[in-house]
Design a protein around this nucleic acid. Structure first.
Lengths: 239, 239
DNA sequence: TCAAAAGTGTTATCATTACACCCATGG
DNA sequence: CCATGGGTGTAATGATAACACTTTTGA
């Protein structure tokens, strides 16, 4: 049964950029292989059309689960892409979301419009459908900017992690040319006081590292205090 | 002539949050009074429906000019609002944009669907149509966050300004409870090296202030250098 | 006892804070 | 000559960067 309007309307879709870290600390992104035209067999971001009565975020989570099986993900809106020619089927405006997940604890499986699902290293991507490489690069830029002033990186790590893992995470996301100074990295991160010790590595053939977890409550508290400070002291005007 | 689709489609609109600073350094936002239902006579953000073949940003600029006469504005995408019930006419997804302008150099005049146009102080707003107060508060939050790490504030000031004006600007945007320390504000802002002296005040009945303007090129250069540094040094992990 | 990571001490430097004070102008 | 904002000087404090070094484990 057809739907009729006085003026033409664009279609509205959602797309999800899901980042994960693999065992070797490489930054990966979740892609699906399209089962249908257009761009049949091309790799693309998981996504699809928004239903008439569902919120955008719900649509993004639904499509992600339908196509990849991934659920219980914390997503955040990234940007809306609406160039008239971005989709060969006609005007499609796409609201993009992004997420960070611990790769190991979020198994995936292709379903629905997806022929396959796979994690790709962000620096070795296949050609992508539509304007998805642009969406992905916007997401990467956002991730790099955000990781600098919010502790979002912890989402990518397991619950308990070592400082070396954390350091490699930062090196990976920022794409630094050479490793950061270990001593200084540790001093800074520990001095912030948002990590708590939760044990020790076992069975490694070198000195076992202390394990830490992110203390979310403490972080929230400190962030509030720091904000008060800013109001008092004024700007923090960083270039 | 009607348009027919196999599946229902939402309508897509754009809305603009335009901020300005008035003579007394109060932060203002540009609103229109709606000429038609729904929310006839209510105040709202300038905006309207996206044409089928125009980019989103073009639509935002077009609607802004049609309704308020304002043009040559630098806008940036803010967020997309798509709750199913946000518009009584049916499903309308709105892509919001925001802008900072020097109020004095952007005269406005109501036209089209707008009965009136006016600048309102952000802390003394009338009731707004749709979910526009939510959009506005998202824009304010973004503005406050962004002003801390990017020199966007300069857009709000005249080409040449005094350090006192700049300080009041920061105090206004951040909404600080008491004035910032003058000495320290000046040291920090000058030490960044992105301001250039361009003259002196005249005809004021006190010591005339030096006038400065923002050195965009120097800023770009410093920002690049700083980014290199970050890559070398690693995180700047602020709470 | 060796390799491989984990983890620490220390110093020079630089930015930030908190104060109190001087300067130039028009009325 | 004074009211009004504009514009310094400086010492104590704290964070950062750049070093080279010690410790703990399994093989």
């Amino acid at each position: 049964m057809p739907y009729t309007y006085d003026y033409p309307r664009p279609a509205v879709s959602v797309d999800c950029v899901v980042f994960g870290l693999d065992e070797s600390s490489a930054l990966k992104v979740l892609l699906i292989q399209r089962a249908r035209a257009p761009f049949q067999d091309h790799w693309a971001l998981p996504g699809g059309f928004v239903d008439m009565d569902e919120p955008l975020e719900t649509a993004a989570l639904r499509e992600l689960e339908e196509e990849t099986g991934m659920k219980e993900v914390f997503i955040e809106q990234l940007y809306t892409f609406g160039e008239p020619e971005r989709d060969p089927r006609g005007r499609v405006i796409s609201v993009a979301y992004y997420a960070l997940v611990n790769l190991a604890s979020h198994p995936v499986q292709a379903a629905d419009d997806a022929k396959k699902v796979a994690w790709f290293a962000v620096d070795r991507l296949p050609p992508l459908a539509f304007d998805h490489s642009q969406i992905l690069s916007t997401a990467l830029t956002r991730l790099r900017a955000k990781v600098r002033y919010q502790p979002i990186g912890f989402e990518l790590l397991p619950e308990r992690f070592t400082l070396s893992q954390l350091q490699r995470l930062y090196e990976t996301i920022l794409g630094v040319p050479e490793p950061l100074n270990k001593r200084n990295f540790r001093k800074r991160i520990l001095q912030m006081g948002v990590l708590k010790e939760v044990g020790k590595q076992k069975g490694v053939s070198h000195r076992p590292a202390k394990l830490y977890s992110f203390d979310r409550e403490k972080y929230e508290r400190l962030a509030r205090e720091k904000y008060e400070d800013l109001l008092r002291r004024g700007l923090d005007f960083e270039i």
